[in-house]
Amino acid sequence: MVSLDENQKKVQSKRFSSEEMKNILSGYLYISPFFIIFAIIGLYPAIFSLILAFQKWNGLGEMEFVGLNNFKVILSDPLFWKSVYNTIILGLMGTAPQLVVGLVLAFLLNLTYLRFKAFFRVTIFMPYITSMVAVALVFSVFFSNNETALVNYLIGLFGFDPVNWKTSEWGAKIAISTMVFWRWLGYNTIIYLAGMQSISNELYEASKIDGASKLQQLRHITIPLLKPFILLTVFFSTVGAMQLFTEPTVFLGNTAFARDEAMTVVMYLYRDAFKLSSFGTASAAAIVLLLFIVCASAVNMMLTQGFGKNRRGR
């Protein structure tokens, strides 16, 4: 009887283990499409780009190993450092203000006594889902070099001379950063708004009883509890700013790669790869850009770690 019971237990354990294995395999099969697509679209190009960074290749012939020469070429190129400078300036001008303004707009849209909330929320989010072609056309008209263009007309009312927005150094930067600000403001506002709606109203009611103003509520309740959402938007905004490509390309049109007023790092590596057929230096620029993104993200995350913390002991 003892041996029979042991055999039954072994059979049951094998059956359970086989069912458990089937469940594990079925789970992996369900999630396998994501990993397959990621390996083809994401992982393979990244590995291939890393290999190309140490090769000389025009896209058609045989590869030639050149070691660190591609990195020496781009790091000694003044245009590359100009693109780094442009990327940082455009990121600060177009991305940093939208985080602050988005936080204020989200706070206003979350007010209980505000009317037509749905209309304002949809209106603010509309630029994010608008086609970039339409955005480029609209801003090309607004920032046209003509004296009768909307922006030139407005600054003319204050006594300023018309600006050649697409050819001047700071004119192009202001126009492109304004486009970035307008397009991505609603995205960050909606994220902040979703975070604010997760905060309990009891905290605001208690602070109201203690005599706290709206500004004090924003400073001592909303911002500290929104810290995870602020860190998320700072991280995404930093990565997006360092990868800026679409806005300057569509705004400047055919002359985007011919001048350096608004050339970003991504535009620089795109020019090397698809305009000059130098895939080695383009891949090296991509590796350097990755390092810049990691460093910039780490610095921003450290700077925002203490953002919104209440000071105690006073």
Score class of each variant (00 low, 15 high):
residue 1 M to F: 14
residue 5 D to N: 14
residue 6 E to Q: 09
residue 7 N to R: 10
residue 8 Q to N: 09
residue 10 K to M: 04
residue 11 V to K: 15
residue 12 Q to I: 14
residue 13 S to M: 14
residue 15 R to V: 08
residue 17 S to K: 07
residue 19 E to P: 04
residue 22 K to Y: 02
residue 22 K to E: 02
residue 25 L to Q: 09
residue 26 S to H: 09
residue 26 S to P: 02
residue 29 L to V: 13
residue 32 S to C: 04
residue 34 F to L: 13
residue 37 I to L: 13
residue 39 A to I: 05
residue 43 L to S: 03
residue 46 A to T: 14
residue 54 F to S: 07
residue 59 G to K: 13
residue 61 G to K: 15
residue 63 M to V: 05
residue 63 M to G: 01
residue 66 V to T: 08
residue 70 N to S: 05
residue 72 K to L: 06
residue 75 L to F: 09
residue 75 L to I: 10
residue 81 W to P: 00
residue 82 K to Q: 15
residue 82 K to F: 04
residue 82 K to V: 05
residue 83 S to W: 10
residue 83 S to G: 05
residue 87 T to H: 03
residue 89 I to N: 07
residue 90 L to W: 10
residue 91 G to A: 12
residue 95 T to Y: 09
residue 96 A to K: 04
residue 97 P to V: 04
residue 97 P to F: 11
residue 97 P to H: 13
residue 100 V to K: 05
residue 104 V to T: 08
residue 106 A to C: 15
residue 107 F to R: 06
residue 110 N to D: 14
residue 115 R to C: 06
residue 118 A to H: 07
residue 120 F to L: 13
residue 121 R to F: 12
residue 122 V to G: 05
residue 125 F to I: 05
residue 125 F to S: 02
residue 133 V to W: 03
residue 136 A to T: 04
residue 137 L to W: 05
residue 138 V to A: 01
residue 138 V to T: 03
residue 141 V to M: 12
residue 146 N to W: 11
residue 147 E to N: 10
residue 151 V to G: 01
residue 155 I to E: 06
residue 156 G to F: 00
residue 157 L to I: 10
residue 158 F to P: 01
residue 162 P to F: 00
residue 162 P to M: 04
residue 169 E to C: 05
residue 176 I to R: 01
residue 177 S to H: 08
residue 179 M to Y: 07
residue 180 V to L: 01
residue 183 R to L: 00
residue 185 L to A: 07
residue 190 I to R: 12
residue 192 Y to K: 07
residue 193 L to D: 03
residue 195 G to F: 04
residue 207 S to A: 15
residue 210 D to C: 02
residue 212 A to H: 11
residue 218 L to G: 12
residue 220 H to E: 14
residue 220 H to C: 05
residue 228 P to G: 00
residue 232 L to F: 02
residue 232 L to W: 00
residue 235 F to T: 13
residue 237 S to T: 01
residue 240 G to C: 06
residue 242 M to T: 12
residue 243 Q to Y: 01
residue 250 V to R: 09
residue 251 F to I: 02
residue 262 A to I: 12
residue 264 T to Q: 06
residue 264 T to A: 12
residue 265 V to L: 06
residue 266 V to Y: 09
residue 266 V to W: 09
residue 267 M to F: 08
residue 272 D to E: 10
residue 277 S to Y: 14
residue 286 A to S: 00
residue 289 L to P: 00
residue 289 L to D: 00
residue 290 L to I: 09
residue 291 L to M: 11
residue 293 I to T: 06
residue 293 I to S: 10
residue 294 V to M: 04
residue 296 A to L: 15
residue 301 M to K: 05
residue 302 M to K: 13
residue 304 T to M: 11
residue 305 Q to W: 11
residue 310 N to V: 15
